[in-house]
């Protein structure tokens, strides 16, 4: 089986992703991979699990099947998807024939959605992965975001589609583990960090999400300069001007600003889907609790 897709409309942050390029931190490359990992996996199950997928944003995506046939699975935040103008149920799956178009526009919630196919996305792997790193400018299609006119080939055939277990979306505070520099923040600042509500700013991308700190929890923190340490996705770093930033999949590998907490793995997908303007509160949990939440997940 093979098929050829042609991108006819793409938001600026549309990219090819797989689960990530792991093991390259020493070489200065963070793993990348889907901003909403569980949704990426769900779309893959719906499609029948070919390698890689397309990650798109609220800016939407439109493509045409130029030749061949394929099955596509879609999941993520809430989006409106149309095949040849006809709305399909989201999340879901569809068969595409030559000339068919898929048009995706934002729905009620979420920042990221995924299209996956029964064939593999045929781009050359870079260091064992086809994930696009917006930071390092590698992977995917020439290391860049997808744009109008791009042609993507699908090759081989995946397995049989299956119905994914789509866990009910959690709501409530984003759970964190205290960070490696939590002790550098005064007890009253740490308490305020938990008590107030922050909001997601419009400055967000695959590298990080800046928060608005209207309560000015960190507005008067001294501009600490620390020796740099490794960063992991979910780290909440307080920049020199007091802006909190949550580092995401294309994070810098190391950083020298103080980190008060780290978003737990089980809540990072949900955090990534919070739109600009959303309120966000943080709640500390134990490491044991955070890890217990990971058992039984794919």
């Amino acid at each position: 089986m093979s098929a050829v897709l042609k991108i006819t409309r793409a938001g600026p942050l549309t990219s090819i992703q797989d689960l990530g390029r792991f093991g390259m931190l020493r070489h200065g490359i963070s793993a990348s991979g889907p901003m909403d990992r569980m949704a990426y996996l769900a779309a893959g199950q719906l499609a029948g699990g070919g390698q890689g997928g397309l990650e798109f944003t609220m800016a939407g995506l439109e493509l045409t099947l130029a030749s061949g046939r394929c099955r596509v699975g879609f999941s993520g935040g809430n989006f409106v998807i149309r095949r040849n103008g006809q709305a399909l149920a989201w999340d879901g799956t569809a068969e595409l024939n030559p000339g068919d178009t898929l048009a995706i526009t934002p729905g009620a919630w979420g920042n990221y959605g995924y299209l996956r196919f029964d064939g593999d996305i045929a781009v050359p792997p870079m260091m064992g992965s086809i994930a696009t790193s917006s930071r390092a400018g590698l992977g995917g299609l020439d290391g860049r975001a997808l744009r109008v006119g791009d042609v993507i080939e699908l090759s081989g055939s995946g397995g049989a589609p299956s119905l994914p277990l789509i866990a009910e979306r959690q709501t409530g505070p984003i759970r964190v583990i205290w960070g490696i520099h939590a002790d550098l923040f005064a007890p009253n600042i740490r308490q305020r960090f938990l008590d107030v509500s922050f909001s997601i700013s419009s400055r967000l991308d695959r590298m990080g999400v800046r928060l608005e700190d209207r309560a000015e929890v960190f507005a008067h923190s001294s501009n600490l300069s620390l020796v740099s340490n490794a960063i992991v996705p979910g780290d909440i770093q307080i920049l020199g001007d007091g802006t909190p930033i949550v580092l995401m999949r294309d994070h810098q590998p190391t950083g020298g600003y103080p980190r008060i907490a780290t978003v737990i793995t089980a809540d990072l997908d949900r955090f990534a889907q919070l739109r600009p303007g959303s309120a966000v509160a943080f709640q500390p949990v134990t490491l044991e609790h955070a890890q217990a939440l990971l058992r039984g997940r794919p």
Partner: peptide, 17 residues
């Protein structure tokens, strides 16, 4: 030795270079 998130450990030999 300290946890860094729920999937990493940091071993720190100092707080300055």
């Amino acid at each position: 030795i300290m946890p860094l998130g729920d999937s990493a450990v940091l071993v720190r030999f100092g707080t300055s270079l």
